[in-house]
Amino acid sequence: MTQREAHITVKDLTMAYGDFVIQKNLNFTIQHGDIFLVMGGSGCGKSTIMRALVGLKEPAKGRVLYDGMSFWEAEPEEQDRTMRRFGVMFQSGALWSSMTLAENVALSLEEYTDLTPGQIREVVSLKLALVGLSGFEEFYPSEISGGMQKRAGVARAMALDPDILFFDEPSAGLDPISSRRLDDLILELRDSLGTTMVVVTHELASIFAIGNNSVFLDPETRTMIASGDPKKLLAESRDPKVHKFLTRGEEGAREQ
């Protein structure tokens, strides 16, 4: 990637359900090729922020810019075109239950590429192999375990080699080895294809292994209280909440 302008810019973003404000005044930028983490305790609105980024929920206030283009002010066709460059993995997989894994991954390839059915089959096998599911093409989502469904969701998200991949808690519910392998895959996809990653997570191991930029959301003040490289945050952040989160609350235990 030659251009180093910001890939995603979030300005003054406020998310709310009706009058109930989830998060307010968020400002952060995500560069091309970043692995950007959205961190925070359960229920602080991480997934809601992701819904605003992927174009599923309109923010109450503020703007989301993709390469300088304001997503929520754009024409519907422009929005569609932008969204086609995303790959999204949902928290519980959200696989289409009446389709096999192969059909799940193949759907976007059939819709948006000129590949022949044979080539689509090869791409599907590759994607499933990348998440460690080769041989499971003809299985239905209900026939495989929860962790496998999650990985199949990852395979589906990256079917079209998207520019930006969004992951909602990718490693929650995976065994440590699968989780590690998924982290490796995320890093490798970024390194070799230059994909920008936005990862909603609270798995500490993943946070330090993959993230090079992040935002920390606080449920009490309902806004971000820290941002930057998580390793630096751990070393430098003065905020006790951030520190407690990044050390699994050990700091707090020592104080008591």
Binding site: G135, L185, S192
Partner: peptide, 25 residues
């Protein structure tokens, strides 16, 4: 080959195909 491609191929072949998992319709 590009380094990234070699690594991704390695990741793809890290987990062997589940034998006997292929279903016959």
């Amino acid at each position: 080959l590009p380094k990234g491609a070699v690594k991704l191929i390695a990741i793809a072949s890290a987990v062997p195909e589940e034998k006997g998992s292929q279903k016959k319709g």
